[in-house]
């Protein structure tokens, strides 16, 4: 009797666990599959390479995670990253890296502040605002650079390249920046009052207001954090390449969102963590790398990535409502 009663329950529990961790499970299956298909996949060099090439995306995704948890979107991060890269490269030769870096942060974060003001205080729809900013910032970058590529003239005579190319204790600096920032932001989100407010605002903005939380200020700060991360990503990008086109971050806003969704955050707001986003970034990186290693054309990746995201989102909502399809919600 006891057996027949507990079996379905424990089966259901196992099912629930799989559904909840569906993305991690899929990740493991992918990893095993790729590892069997190509023995270079799990080489230390390859693994470090993937993590390293994911850092710029990862750093951006950390900031956007705050925006998404607060119940908003940020589609402007790709062109904002281009802006940051171009600005810091240009200023490097004009005023030197010591001044160029802080000035670039101020300029990039003013753009974040503007978005935060429009979405937080004026309560405009974040999709519209940041979609508009995507295009406006692109225009701003082109105006700033005159449409030309920007290169650092004396690539050997500056310490600037350390940030993107150096390493400490055998670990590449960009990875250290990524992990350090992830740790800091994770503490901010989970251990400090501000983080609690971000979850409350995204989970139920009205209830947050009724609880005396300054909703507009909270949203504003999320965009500020997002732009700080974008500036950091731009810095790494500039330092790694020492020269750049105006379109270096183009399309990254969607990859960032994809990583966050793969990590399991809800675009409705109120859920997600820094750790989950890091996992999402790594999943995306390893999948793209794996596809490349098994010999898939680079362009095909865009399509496969999209399919993976759709599957992830579907699995996610299916897990929430307990079945694969339902007529409502």
């Amino acid at each position: 009797m006891a057996d027949t009663a507990t079996n379905p329950v424990s089966l259901k529990r196992a099912g629930n666990f799989l559904a909840r961790q569906g993305i991690l499970v899929a990740f493991v299956i992918f990893m095993v599959g790729f590892a069997l298909a190509n023995d270079r996949f799990l080489d230390m060099d390859n693994v470090l390479g993937v993590i390293r090439s994911s850092t710029i995306l990862g750093v951006m995704a950390l900031g956007v995670t705050f925006v998404v948890i607060s119940g908003n979107l940020d589609l402007s991060v790709g062109s904002m990253m281009s802006f940051a890269t171009i600005v810091v490269l240009d200023l490097h030769d004009k005023i030197g890296p010591e001044l160029a870096i802080p000035l670039m942060f101020v300029m990039t974060m003013s753009l974040g502040a503007l978005i935060g003001f429009l979405v937080g205080y004026l309560k405009l729809n974040s999709l519209i605002v940041t979609l508009g900013m995507l295009s406006a910032i692109h225009g701003l970058t082109l105006t700033y650079s005159g449409g030309k590529n920007i290169d650092i003239a004396d690539k050997e005579g500056t310490w600037f390249s350390i940030l993107g190319q150096g390493s400490a204790l055998g670990i590449p600096i960009p990875i250290l920046i990524f992990l350090g920032l992830a740790a800091l932001l994770s503490i901010l989100l989970t251990k400090m009052p501000f983080g609690r407010k971000v979850y409350a605002v995204g989970g139920n903005g009205t209830a947050a207001t009724f609880s005396g939380i300054r909703r507009a200020r909270t949203v504003f700060c999320c965009y500020l954090i997002s732009s700080f991360c974008v500036a950091t990503a731009g810095l790494i990008q500039a330092s790694r390449s020492m020269g750049s086109q105006n379109t270096v971050g183009q399309g990254m806003e969607l990859e960032v969102l994809a990583a966050i969704i793969l990590g399991g955050a809800s675009l409705m707001g109120g859920s997600g963590t820094v750790f989950k986003t890091v996992i999402g970034v790594l999943i995306l990186g390893f999948i793209q790398n794996g596809l490349l290693l098994i010999g898939l054309e680079f362009y095909v990746q865009y399509i496969v990535t999209w399919i993976i995201i759709i599957l992830a989102v579907w699995l996610d909502i299916a897990a929430k409502r307990g079945r694969l399809w339902s007529p409502i919600a």
Partner: peptide
């Protein structure tokens, strides 16, 4: 709609208005 963040746990909902005051240093 106005009283609760349904996806949050019981404790966090209850302490939401005073989360700024229930701190040790900068941390909750």
């Amino acid at each position: 709609e106005q009283g609760l963040v349904l996806g949050m746990n019981c404790r966090d909902n209850m302490t939401l208005p005073q989360v700024d005051d229930l701190t040790a240093g900068p941390f909750v």
